[in-house]
Design a protein around this nucleic acid. Sequence first.
DNA 1: GTGCGCACGCACCTCGAAGTGCGTACTTGA
DNA 2: TCAAGTACGCACTTCGAGGTGCGTGCGCAC
Lengths: 131, 131
Amino acid sequence: MAARPGAHVCGIDAAMTVIGGKWKVLILWALHDGTRRFGELRRLVPGVTEKVLASHLRELENDGIVRREVHDEVPPRVEYSLTPAGVALNTALAPLSAWGRDHAMTAPAGRRIHGVTLIPRPPGRLVVVSG
Amino acid sequence: MAARPGAHVCGIDAAMTVIGGKWKVLILWALHDGTRRFGELRRLVPGVTEKVLASHLRELENDGIVRREVHDEVPPRVEYSLTPAGVALNTALAPLSAWGRDHAMTAPAGRRIHGVTLIPRPPGRLVVVSG
DNA sequence: GTGCGCACGCACCTCGAAGTGCGTACTTGA
DNA sequence: TCAAGTACGCACTTCGAGGTGCGTGCGCAC
């Protein structure tokens, strides 16, 4: 249906392109408190496969959300962190998170999209509870 | 992968459940300035099929986002409007929209998710530009 | 009387995102 | 010596959201 790249003017359209992936927001939340390695992200986002995690990280990198630093060492080490745009995106997601938290209590919510649930803690840690 | 309904504690998870559909945000934007009929929504969201529009509206109704009023007339008339929760959701989407608008200019944005683009205007009207 | 519009429901199909499995070249630990 | 970890890439498969097509019952315009 008319695939026309880069044609979104409405901001939500662009934002949904970025966070539309199944695990994108979980990756963003896992990165919001600093630098993470690939293996750490894999453990922080339980259920995601390595292929999908790698491809999502590439997409986020192309979108300018995460920064990817490759250290040329003998055990290969790659570090991921949020760019300023990524930090801003996380900030922009905060009211949505607040709405969901307020609304999830009152709504029946018979459906779900992820199957995993993550609980952010104020000091900066992230607790992930697999479904 | 452990489908456990109603298990999301993180708000973004719940919010993504609600706005995760392909046309959900477009429907929300189309409804943000008042009551709309089914046929109006179909015209305001070009590209959506009737079946998908109907099912998405049902899901939004079940999530308490839109109110559905059926008038028992001979030409069947159904009117849709946002509930207070829907208005709050739209408000919560505003910073995300602002982020996307700011960021879409700087990023290459080679991909896209919808294929249609909508431009909200301040007075309350909505202009939709099909891709 | 023929077709159109209304607001959907049902059955089938498509297609792309996500999942699975295997491979890399190298080091470290048991 | 062998397994495990590191950070992926490639080819294949699955699966469900979304698309297509057809049907409803009624009124109205032509």
